[in-house]
Design a binder for these strands. Structure first.
Lengths: 130, 130
DNA sequence: AAATTTAATGATAATGATTGTCATGTGCAA
DNA sequence: TTGCACATGACAATCATTATCATTAAATTT
């Protein structure tokens, strides 16, 4: 019954690249980076692998306003992000009382099964200096 | 120089529908609703009008995880939303100290030109009862 | 080690939301 | 009323993502 995840060259290549990448990257960027380092993986497989890793909570997946989905290897504890709009460099941040606040507000209005999105976007120091 | 916004039947129809709609709706849904009430507007024009209204901060525009852009007439003061994943019904909420918190965190990491997204998603009472 | 089973791969096509094009329509200022 | 510039909308184009499916190759069994 349990879905067996096979250990393939492609899955390892994607996982390894994510380990070495600190910025949020799109599927296309990850595809390009893999080609550059000589460990090409088909674009379809890149999408599938990222989706699989995201479902397993091994990578974070987000979509900035007006942009495509971005992926990044993160710690497993719940956190939020401060992301550079220009280069994708990322700082993991821990929201203060967002969790409990969200639950309380939702309950007050009769909403259940609550989730939330909280992301900060800005321009990092490097990109500010052009 | 200033862009003049003309008062057309189509723009009025979209604005009027938004005034009477309390839920976040997609462009396609708005297009359909306009047809139903006999004030049809071309889909391209619906998109253009919504974008124009969003840029003027007269409607809020958001994109739930895995979904398309949604639009809703809101108050002009800055606020966040609690949105039903199932029917789109929305409660406007005011975040606590999110603003200042975001600015402080960003400054600590050398980021400038900060913006943030904070949205809550859940299932409203009506949809919980099927 | 070979055979077998079944998930994974990837080239390609399909999808679908959003945007671009451009001929025509129309608000509005003169 | 006229003229100009923006607005409209049918249609085509774009493009990220997903579906298809024949082929490859893990992992398991013989």
């Amino acid at each position: 019954m349990a879905t067996v995840v096979r250990n393939t060259r492609q899955r390892s290549a994607v996982a390894q690249l994510l380990l070495e990448t600190d910025e949020f990257r799109s599927a296309q960027e990850i595809y390009d980076l893999l080609r550059q380092r000589g460990t090409s993986v088909g674009l379809t497989t890149v999408y599938r692998t990222l989706q699989s890793l995201a479902e397993a909570d091994e990578v974070d997946m987000m979509r900035p306003p007006g942009g495509d989905y971005l992926y990044r290897q993160c710690t497993t504890e719940h956190h939020h992000h401060l992301v550079c709009r220009s280069c994708g460099s990322t700082v993991e941040i821990t929201g203060p009382a967002v969790e409990s606040w969200a639950q309380r507000i939702a309950a007050e209005h009769g909403f259940s099964d609550i989730s939330h999105t909280l992301e900060l976007f800005g321009t990092c120091r490097t990109c500010s200096a052009q």
